[in-house]
Amino acid sequence: RELRDAFREFDTNGDGRISVGELRAALKALLGERLSQREVDEILQDVDLNGDGLVDFEEFVRMMS
C-alpha cells in the first residue's frame, strides 16, 4: 500500500506509468538536487525491464526493493 501511494506521487499525470520527466522531478524532490539527463537515463535503463521507456508499477516495486 505504501509503495502504491509512492507510485501515485511519482506518476503525476495518473496514467499508471512514470515517464522520464516524472522520474526526473521525483528524484529531484527526493534528493534535493537535479540529476543530469544522463544520470536519469541510466536509472531508467536499469529500472525499465520491458524497454518501453516508462516505469510501470511492477518495475517501480522492484526499483524500491
Rank of each mutant, 00 (worst) to 15 (best):
L54S: 12
R8A: 10
F60L: 05
L30I: 07
G53S: 10
V55Y: 13
M63D: 04
S19M: 04
L27T: 14
L44S: 03
R34D: 15
D56R: 09
R17K: 12
A25G: 12
L27P: 02
R38H: 15
L54V: 05
F7A: 00
V40M: 13
A26W: 02
D52H: 10
V55T: 10
R34L: 06
R34E: 15
L27Y: 07
D11V: 00
K28W: 09
L27S: 15
D41T: 08
R38G: 12
R4I: 08
D46I: 03
G32C: 02
M63V: 13
M64T: 12
D41C: 09
S19E: 06
D11T: 01
D41M: 04
E42Q: 04
V47N: 05
N50S: 09
F10I: 10
E22C: 02
A25W: 06
G16Y: 01
K28I: 12
G14Q: 12
F60K: 00
I18H: 00
I43Y: 03
F60T: 04
R4Y: 02
L30D: 08
D56L: 06
L30N: 15
D52N: 11
E33A: 12
V40I: 13
R62L: 05
D41Y: 13
M63Q: 10
D11Q: 03
D48E: 15
F7K: 00
V40C: 09
R8K: 09
V47Y: 11
E58C: 01
L27C: 12
A25M: 12
L31C: 10
N13D: 11
V61R: 10
R17Y: 11
F10P: 00
F60A: 02
A29I: 05
I18A: 01
R38M: 08
G21N: 09
L54F: 05
D52I: 08
R4H: 09
R4L: 02
E9W: 03
G16Q: 05
L3E: 04
E22M: 02
D46C: 03
D11G: 02
E59H: 06
L3N: 03
S19F: 02
R17L: 13
R8W: 04
L54R: 04
R34F: 04
A6H: 02
E9P: 02
G51E: 15
L23H: 01
L23Y: 05
E59V: 14
F7E: 00
S65Y: 11
R34N: 13
S36K: 13
D41W: 07
A6I: 08
E33Q: 11
I43E: 13
E59G: 06
A6G: 03
L44E: 08
V55A: 06
G51D: 13
A26N: 04
L35N: 14
E59T: 14
F10Y: 07
V40S: 11
G32K: 05
V40K: 10
E33F: 08
S65F: 06
D41H: 03
A26R: 03
G51T: 12
E58I: 00
G53K: 08
Q45N: 03
M64D: 05
N13Q: 00
F10K: 07
R4E: 15
E9Q: 10
D52T: 06
D46L: 04
Q45W: 08
R17S: 09
V55W: 06
L3P: 02
L30G: 10
R62W: 08
E33Y: 08
R8V: 06
L54G: 14
G21S: 10
L35D: 14
F7Y: 05
L54K: 05
A6V: 12
M64N: 15
L23C: 07
D52M: 06
L27V: 14
Q45H: 11
Q37K: 12
D46V: 03
D56I: 08
L23S: 05
D5G: 04
D15G: 08
G51K: 12
E22I: 01
G16T: 01
K28C: 11
E9D: 12
D11P: 00
E22A: 03
D56F: 00
G53N: 09
L54I: 05
L31R: 10
N50K: 12
T12W: 02
E42N: 00
Q37W: 10
V55D: 00
F10M: 03
N50A: 10
L30M: 01
A25I: 01
D52Y: 06
M64C: 14
T12V: 03
A26M: 15
R38E: 05
L23D: 01
D56Y: 06
S36G: 09
M64S: 15
R4K: 14
R38S: 12
F60H: 00
A25D: 13
E33P: 11
D5K: 09
Q37N: 15
D46P: 04
D41L: 04
L35V: 11
G53R: 03
L31F: 13
S65T: 07
G51L: 13
Q45K: 05
L35M: 03
A6N: 13
I43N: 13
R38L: 10
V47W: 06
Q45M: 07
E58A: 09
D48P: 05
L35T: 12
L31A: 15
A26Y: 06
L31V: 10
E22N: 01
N13C: 02
A26V: 08
G32I: 03
V55R: 00
R1S: 08
L23K: 01
G53F: 03
A6W: 08
E42Y: 04
I18K: 01
R8G: 05
V20T: 07
L3K: 01
D48G: 02
F7H: 00
V40W: 13
D52E: 13
G32R: 05
E22Q: 03
R1Y: 06
D41F: 09
D11A: 01
V55P: 00
D56E: 15
R62N: 08
N13T: 03
L44D: 09
E22P: 00
E33G: 12
Q45T: 12
I18R: 00
A25F: 09
K28R: 08
L35C: 08
F7I: 01
D52W: 03
L30T: 11
G32A: 09
V20H: 10
L27F: 14
G21P: 13
G53C: 08
L23A: 15
A26E: 00
F7Q: 00
R38F: 08
I43M: 11
E33M: 10
E33L: 06
G16E: 08
D5F: 09
G14E: 06
E2A: 02
V20K: 01
L27H: 09
G14T: 02
I43H: 15
R38K: 01
E9Y: 05
S19L: 02
S36W: 06
G16I: 00
V55I: 06
A6M: 14
F10C: 07
E42L: 06
D41K: 08
F60Q: 00
R4S: 04
V40F: 09
D11I: 00
K28E: 12
R17H: 11
F10R: 08
D46Q: 07
K28P: 14
S36C: 03
M64P: 01
I18Y: 01
V20N: 14
L44K: 13
L54E: 09
N13R: 02
E22K: 03
V20Q: 11
K28A: 15
G16C: 02
D48N: 15
V47Q: 12
N13L: 00
V40R: 15
G21A: 12
E9S: 08
Q45G: 06
E22W: 00
R8L: 08
I43L: 11
G32P: 10
N13I: 00
V40N: 02
L27K: 11
V55N: 01
F60R: 00
F10S: 07
R34P: 12
V20G: 12
F60M: 08
S36I: 12
F7T: 01
R4F: 04
Q45C: 05
G32S: 02
M64V: 15
D46K: 07
D46S: 08
N50C: 13
V55Q: 03
F10H: 14
A6P: 00
G53Y: 11
L54H: 04
G16F: 00
G16L: 01
Q45D: 07
E33I: 09
E42C: 09
T12L: 04
E59P: 08
S36A: 13
L44R: 06
F10L: 02
T12D: 03
R34A: 13
L3M: 12
S19T: 15
R1I: 07
D11N: 01
D52C: 08
A29D: 14
D52V: 07
R4N: 10
L3F: 08
G53I: 07
L27D: 02
R62F: 05
V40D: 13
Q37G: 09
